[in-house]
């Protein structure tokens, strides 16, 4: 038999999601705080078919659906902008989309934020896919050189906040 059940191996934090008999809707995003570049460098992994089904639902019903990567990327860029948001001290940060690549059943999305170093509070929202798939769970790993914290986000609470000193061990 071939196992069709989805298993997303999330490399960053060695967190592995287990299946049951029902498909599991899950994604993983690593947000790496690069202190030297003053950047948040983000890498998101989603199952292609989940994002494709969202894309299909938003595309013109009168036209026969055809997958085109450039159009798909434009669509993703918009969806990402709305649904993945980082606030520093309650100010929404500017997101720059870098691109996407496929790895078997998974699409990897790269994007980044140029930020100021003097902030106190981080809030991250990730509601990607949640309005389309209510069981969607998005995991966010907030990573620095020596710290790594993970948050499981769901439709009930698609965001988290944390004080900067807690992830940087600053006093």
């Amino acid at each position: 038999m071939i196992i069709l059940v989805k298993i997303l191996v999330i490399v960053f934090n060695s967190l592995i999601i287990i299946n049951s008999n029902h498909p599991y809707y899950i994604s993983a995003t690593q947000v790496f705080y690069s202190k030297k570049d003053n950047q948040f460098q983000c890498t998101s992994r989603f199952f292609i078919d989940d994002l494709e089904s969202l894309y299909k639902s938003k595309s013109d019903k009168n036209q026969i659906y055809k997958f085109q990567k450039d159009k798909f990327d434009i669509f993703l860029r918009e969806h990402l902008k709305e649904n993945f948001v980082i606030f520093l001290d309650d100010i929404k940060q500017n997101q720059s989309f870098i691109g996407t690549e496929f790895s078997n059943d998974v699409i990897i999305i790269y994007f980044e934020y140029q930020i100021k170093s003097n902030f106190k509070k981080i809030k991250i929202k990730n509601s990607i896919l949640m309005n389309h798939i209510n069981d969607q769970k998005n995991i966010v790993h907030l990573k620095t050189e020596n710290e790594n914290q993970s948050y499981l986000l769901t439709l009930r609470k698609p965001f988290f906040s944390i004080n900067k000193k807690l992830i940087l061990n600053e006093n």
Binding site: Q41, G99, Y110
Partner: peptide, 11 residues
């Protein structure tokens, strides 16, 4: 280089 840096320099 991290995967992020590799991809960024590729793009």
């Amino acid at each position: 280089p991290s995967d992020f840096e590799k991809f960024k320099s590729k793009i």
